[in-house]
Amino acid sequence: MSTKTRTPVMAIRNLVVDYVTQEGPLRVVDGVSLDVHAGELLGLAGESGSGKSTLALAAMRALGAPGVIRGGEVLLSGDNGVEDLLRMSPARLQEVRWSDVAMVVQSAMGALNPVLKVRDQIIDALVAHGVPKARHAPRVAELMQSVSLPPETADAYPHQLSGGMRQRVVIAMAIALRPRLLWMDEPTTALDVIVEREILELVAELSRKEGFGVVLITHDLPRMLEVCDTVAIMYGGRLAELATVDVIHRGGARHPYTSGLMAAFPSLHGDESALQAIPGDAVSLRQPPTGCRFHPRCARAQASSGCMDRTPPWRQTNRLGVACHRADEPE
């Protein structure tokens, strides 16, 4: 990949996030590090409860109660050099969000303000970031065109649009200030398969054209493998594996959980015979297993390798990596 040597647009370092509960803080994201480069499409996958959405919201500092960030860095490289989003003044944070890093949230209906026209909601973002008034109308028209919506959509209210159109509007709003990075938190859960595909292809195309990096969070692993360049797999609040799509397609997943996830989805090219679910239940964050959090469900877990009692370290090779004690051992 050509992205190896450049500074990433966003580098998450050791991010730790807790939810405050009656019994005390609950670790939901536990020391995750992740790089995203310009023009790269990174897929972030994992079971529900693996912490992927929490990671995204925390990295935007948009995680609501009872979430709290306990440590780490979210380094953004922009015109002012590299800045840590977690250590910014409120004023700077207000500037940086949306102009440098934007987000497409889960439900397009819930994300839009029902009493304002699409145009006004986009213009609100432009105004907040000092775009001169003369640029508003042309920019809205451009954006409608980029997301393949008829220009008159801008004058509609959200309830007049279909689910797919709403999601396009949300994407248009997200790229209104030409961010360097776009978080997409399960952007297509409420949409049917055909619309889902259209939306993801649109994002991939926009990313190529405008050069912004994308982190795509989704349950739909096969679709993710179709559009993304790199895939990050989370398990129990930690990063399990970071691999290129090519490697995974070639069957080169190194973490047993990644292989398990792959086997649990039907391949896009037929071959449904070998569908296998991963045995056992998702990890409990209240009482996570010691050692590797995946070990109770892992066929390769082995006491002598330390799976049961030592947290597996992150083994980095080039940009990729894996957190598994037995990753380098033969099957």
Partner: peptide, 13 residues
């Protein structure tokens, strides 16, 4: 505390 911009609070470990 959570500020008026509702940004996620940061409480170092």
């Amino acid at each position: 505390s959570v500020g008026p911009d509702a940004a996620t609070p940061i409480v170092p470990l």
